[in-house]
Computed example of a mutant assay.
Amino acid sequence: MRFNTATCLAVCASAASALPGFFSQDVTAADDKPSVPGSNPLVYCNAEHSSDIVSITSVDLSPNPPAAGSTLEIKATGTVYEPILEGAYINLVVKYGLIRLINQEVDLCEQTEKADLKCPIEKGVLSITKSVEIPKEVPPGKYTVHAEVLNADDKPITCLEATVQFGGSKSDNEL
């Protein structure tokens, strides 16, 4: 299976509750990290995120819970306090158990173009809807995703994390 950025985002976004049928998952979040509002598995990386350029109002997933091999629709709403400039980026880390699958810098503006947004993204209220295909071949196990999003001048836009357990019971799949 090719594990690209879209797949990582799908794994992160699909960490909601239990998958029906063959796959099941268990979402965990650290108690000291605030949850992102809405129907989603996301938490902020740090308890303090008041200096973020974006304030997330909600992130909702449909269907929730998502299913392997289906299309996941992600709806996000928030407020942008400073323009998001060309050159903004995401430091993306995805782990499968203890194995680091991805550790890369991703161009944020390239990703936002997939949701019909172009940089610069101006100040104001912003709503995004994005559909992502969840691969049916997602291997069972524990996945963690860390996405630190920074503007071109390195100011924090936001930082989000998710942990998901795909397939079987949590104790059966820990690495």
Rank of each mutant, 00 (worst) to 15 (best):
T5Y: 14
T5R: 06
C8Q: 09
V11L: 10
A18V: 11
A18D: 12
L19S: 06
S24Q: 14
D26Y: 10
A30G: 12
D32E: 08
P34I: 09
P34V: 10
V36R: 09
P41E: 09
V43Q: 14
V43E: 11
Y44Q: 05
C45T: 11
H49D: 08
H49R: 13
S55P: 00
D60F: 03
N64I: 04
N64L: 05
P65A: 07
P65Y: 11
E73K: 13
K75G: 01
T77S: 10
G78E: 05
G78S: 08
Y81W: 01
E82N: 09
Y89L: 03
Y96T: 03
Y96R: 15
Y96K: 15
I99Q: 11
I102T: 14
Q104N: 14
Q104R: 15
V106L: 10
V106P: 04
D107Y: 04
E110L: 12
Q111K: 08
T112L: 15
K114V: 08
K118I: 06
V125K: 10
I128N: 02
T129K: 07
T129A: 11
T129C: 00
S131W: 00
S131R: 08
E133N: 04
I134L: 14
K136L: 00
E137I: 01
K142H: 08
K142Y: 06
T144H: 04
H146A: 13
V149Q: 09
V149Y: 12
P156Y: 14
T158A: 15
T158W: 06
C159L: 09
L160K: 02
L160I: 15
A162R: 01
T163A: 14
D172T: 07
N173T: 12
E174A: 05
L175S: 11
